[in-house]
């Protein structure tokens, strides 16, 4: 395996959790709900994935548990912002704080326990292709899911009736309600989808990226995923390129640290966070473009008038 191939492989591994979390949040935000709890749902997925893999000895069941618990956990947020119409910013923060706390409590028993890695699945024939084969067709199942989800979400949002309804809810909940769309039900489903995706992203961290449990192991990736959605101006395929760009920044700093170039490691570790700020500034600069792309009811509560 060449050095380029090795680097590209690590980029894919770093990008996959970002992609999974961001594509889920994209659907949530398209329905008009801003869930700042991605970090919390992700860390719940990470500990759930790790714990269930340990209990059952099967990392696939762990992955499934990560998705399910992520979705269930997002229901806390959903109930508050959708049924009780609480402030979405504050409630999302609460979800993150609670997720970090619960995962720490649950994970205490698993600190230092050797993890179970989700092994790559080689696709017959395709994985034999030189260079591209090992990169794209000999990956863990979560990589395939992440790519599949991007295509599926894009198709769903722009080619199906249900997707049109979801976007309508996100752009004008009063009109959607008047047309007979159940705004709250659509949003509940979008929130849970986002939760499941964030859970998968977390499971990727504790079963693929670094197969072990470390407290706060999401390390701000949930927040970077939120920034990715803005960066992608709420378009699925742009999330794909954004996630790989951010994955590359994360990996570049790791390689720079390994090479021991004269920059202190802390500065290199700060790169992904600084890059996020810079990208946000660049992308948001054009106010009109942002206004066109942002779902119009993003972050606004809805109380159906009966």
């Amino acid at each position: 395996m060449g050095i380029l191939e090795a680097v590209l492989l690590t980029i894919i591994t770093a990008a996959t959790p970002l992609l999974l979390a961001a594509i889920g949040e994209l659907v949530t935000e398209r329905s008009g709900v801003l869930n700042l709890g991605v970090e919390g749902m992700m860390i719940i997925g990470a500990i759930a994935g790790f714990a269930f893999a340990q209990m059952t000895g099967n990392p696939y069941l762990g992955t499934l548990a990560g998705a399910i618990l992520g979705a269930l956990f997002s229901l806390f947020f959903g109930f508050l912002v959708l049924t009780l119409v609480t402030n979405q910013y504050a409630t999302g923060l609460a979800l993150t704080i609670l997720g970090l706390g619960l995962s720490g409590l649950w994970g205490e028993a698993y600190i230092g326990v050797p993890g179970i890695k989700l092994q790559p699945v080689a696709i017959p024939l395709l994985s034999e292709i030189p260079f591209f084969g090992p990169l794209f067709f000999k990956q863990d199942i979560l990589f395939y899911i992440s790519i599949g989800l991007v295509c599926a979400v894009s198709y769903f949002l722009f080619r199906t009736n249900a997707g049109l309804k979801l976007r309508a809810v996100g752009d004008n909940h009063h009109s959607a309600h008047a047309l007979g769309v159940n705004v709250i039900a659509v949003r509940y489903m979008a929130v849970m989808f986002g939760g499941a995706c964030a859970g998968l992203a977390g499971a990727h961290l504790s079963l693929v990226y670094t197969p072990q449990w470390v407290e706060n192991m999401s390390a701000g990736r949930g927040w970077i995923a939120l920034a990715l959605v803005v960066f992608a101006s709420w378009r699925p395929y742009r999330v794909l390129s954004g996630a790989y760009l951010f994955g590359a920044v994360g990996i570049a700093q790791l390689h720079a640290q390994a090479l021991g170039i004269g920059i202190p490691s802390q500065f290199l570790s700060a790169l992904p966070y600084i890059a996020t700020v810079v990208v946000l500034v660049l992308i948001s600069r054009n106010r009109r473009l942002t206004l066109i792309n942002t779902p119009a009811t993003l972050g606004k509560g809805f109380v159906p008038d009966r």
Binding site: L36, Y89, A227, V230, V277, L280, V281, S284, R285, T290
Partner: peptide, 8 residues
């Protein structure tokens, strides 16, 4: 620059 202050 209109950048989201939560994330920055």
């Amino acid at each position: 620059f209109n950048a989201n202050e939560i994330l920055t």
